[in-house]
Design a protein around this nucleic acid. Structure first.
Length: 342
DNA sequence: GATTCGTGGGT
DNA sequence: TACCCAAGAAT
């Protein structure tokens, strides 16, 4: 691996960051709780998507105590549409742990913070460095991309094992001071200059340190294995409205896909798996194709009017206004939107 | 170590 | 259209 002038690399990167960093909401904060929230939201999610959620979430839950005291339903509602909903549930649980076990103070050691639910190696390093200026490495996709180019590393960054290698390199490159700025600078560079495709090397403050640039292979790095195509799942969705205009909805189990979110009853076994109504009364409402990262829902949506005699556990009859208070996945929000039209 | 967990935007 | 991409963690 190429040797670089570490001090020069650090100062070139930090000088650029000082002048060019974007003005982002969480960069105006020092509250470790708020930094933490931003890091959870930013997992696998673009900055532009996160910003409005971040603002609303912290207006609703301004302090760690406020979030810890909240109902999970309200936390999920605030996360609705952001995806990866376990992030919200794990954050909620972790915040309660901090309230109960750490007197409400976000822990500042690697061991303690990494033990919190939903806080993995990246988030631990990010919160430690950004909120507490502790020189802990935070290796995300940006960092792996940037460093794979700086050092011409051809390890497949899709493999979990690769992260450790980049973590060791990052640790060696961390400045004693300004750990938080350095962490953010590395990610900022990846986000706005050292892009996945067509990196803007002419604008890069550390181009002179970059091995890939020197060799002209920056477009071929990092190496990242393709992921396989998502599998398809056929679903029949039943929209049941009673004579009082209420809809039958249910809460999903608290594990697995869309855990804890609400939905209209649905089945992989066709109409048979839907609530017991006269099958001939189902009328086709629409078809919806919804793509997740690892699967595709092919939804056939049916509706009927029927007075439900007996509710299952976790089922409720709600008006449109009432069910809009619950957190629904985007796939089912599409259905709600149709109901509002008619 | 591979798979599961969402969503919206870019090309 | 059909990919790919994004400040990952849990299982």
């Amino acid at each position: 691996m190429q040797i670089i002038d570490t001090k020069k690399f650090q100062s070139d990167l930090l000088d650029w960051y000082d002048n060019e960093k974007r003005d982002l909401p969480w960069r105006r904060e020092r509250d470790p709780y708020r930094i933490w929230v931003s890091e959870i939201m930013l997992q696998q999610t673009k900055v532009d998507t996160v910003i409005p959620y971040y603002e609303r979430f912290l207006t609703k839950f301004p302090t760690l105590e406020a979030l810890a005291d909240a109902d999970e339903e309200d936390v999920l509602k605030a996360w609705e549409g952001l995806g990866y909903y376990s992030r919200a549930r794990n954050l909620h649980q972790a915040v309660k742990e901090v309230r109960d076990d750490y007197n409400g103070i976000v822990p500042s050691t690697e061991k303690e913070i990494a033990a919190l639910k939903g806080v993995g190696p990246y988030t631990a390093g990010a919160v430690l460095s950004i909120a507490y200026n502790v020189p802990a490495p935070a290796v995300d996709g940006n960092v792996m991309r940037v460093l794979s180019r700086i050092f011409s590393i051809y390890d497949d960054i899709a493999k979990p094992a690769s992260r450790k290698k980049f973590e060791a390199i990052t640790r060696d490159l961390l400045p004693e001071n300004r750990a938080g700025d350095y962490t953010q600078a590395l990610m900022e560079l990846g986000a706005v200059v050292c892009l996945p495709r067509k990196p803007a090397c002419l604008l890069c403050p550390v181009a002179e340190h970059c091995s890939a640039r020197k060799e002209g292979v920056q477009e071929f790095l990092p190496v990242k294995a393709k992921k396989k195509a998502p599998r398809s799942v056929q679903l029949s969705v039943g929209v049941v409205r009673d004579s009082r205009g209420r809809y039958l909805v249910e809460k999903r189990p608290d594990t697995g896909l869309l855990a804890g979110m609400w939905q209209f009853p649905h089945s992989e076994e066709g109409l048979d798996g839907l609530p017991a109504v006269d099958e001939s009364s189902w009328e086709n409402l629409t078809q919806i194709r919804h793509v997740f990262s690892h699967l595709v829902w092919e939804m056939d949506v049916y509706q009927t009017v029927h007075d439900v005699q007996k509710l299952e556990k976790a089922q409720q009859l709600l008006t449109v206004d009432e069910l809009k208070q619950k957190a629904f996945p985007v796939s089912h929000q599409k259905i709600i939107a149709l109901l509002e039209e008619s």
